[in-house]
């Protein structure tokens, strides 16, 4: 555990040692404000809920989370510090998990800083705060899923730009897997079972189920499974780098 803590603290502090943390927080909060109030017409909806606010989050994550994840391993590989990290007496899983948790807690911090919107909606009306809480948790889980994908891809390259672009593409596919355009492409020829499998991988489907107030444990399990799967892939990729 102390190994995990050491990696976590170093990684979390690294966000704040450079302007990354502040740039990320400002851009995240600014864009979510623009999306919610201007594009989403928050005040003219006439409903006291945060569906507009949460509806834009997957698309915002799509661009911002890869930026948060890209440096996790690629930077270590480029600078050579990975050699130091992997020769410390730390289990690989603890290093992988410590890095991921640092990024996830940072994403959680960004999400938590959107609380003025929650205060605003409670001031203006009587929203269902249970649904809002579930949506926040769902959003946090989805951010974790995007991050785990980005961390694993970052471990496979020493170039942060490549890590960013590939993560963006993979996350995009996971996001839209359930969209009607994608479904149409499959529906013509694929057996219905396969169509269901593809659409069940969609982040959007699971996330919108949560934000609609349908609290189903299966949606949470889905995001935890994605996180677990990609962290495991991350460990395998690190083991592969060790064999040269």
């Amino acid at each position: 555990m102390s190994a995990l803590g050491a990696v976590f603290r170093r990684e979390f502090a690294a966000y704040f040692a450079t302007p990354i943390a502040f740039v990320f927080l400002i851009i995240f909060l600014f864009s979510i404000g623009v999306f919610t109030f201007y594009i989403g017409n928050f005040f003219n909806n006439g409903t006291a809920d945060l569906s507009v606010f949460f509806g834009f989050q997957p698309w915002l994550y799509l661009f911002l989370i890869p930026a948060l994840a890209m440096r996790l391993w690629a930077e270590e590989k480029r600078s050579g510090s990975i050699e130091l990290l992997l020769t410390l007496p730390l289990p690989v899983w603890a290093t992988v998990l410590g890095k991921f948790l640092a990024a996830w807690v940072f994403a959680g911090l960004a999400l938590a800083l959107t609380f003025p919107i929650w205060i605003t909606i409670n001031y203006l009306g009587h929203p269902d705060n249970g649904v809002i809480l579930a949506s926040y948790l769902g959003s946090f889980l989805m951010a974790g899923a995007y991050l785990s994908i980005g961390a694993a891809i970052s471990a496979a390259t020493s170039n942060q730009v490549i890590a960013f672009v590939i993560t963006l593409v993979v996350c995009f596919l996971f996001t839209v897997a359930g969209a009607s355009a994608v479904m149409d492409a499959f529906q013509g020829w694929a057996p219905p079972a396969l169509v269901d499998v593809v659409s069940s991988f969609s982040f959007l489907t699971h996330f919108s189920a949560i934000t609609a107030g349908v609290i189903d444990l299966r949606d949470a399990i889905f995001f935890f499974s994605v996180i677990g799967l990609f962290l495991y892939a991350n460990v395998l990729i690190i083991d592969m780098t060790k064999s040269g």
Partner: peptide, 8 residues
């Protein structure tokens, strides 16, 4: 090459 974390 004595790698380290440069920002620290």
């Amino acid at each position: 090459g004595a790698p380290a974390y440069g920002e620290m």
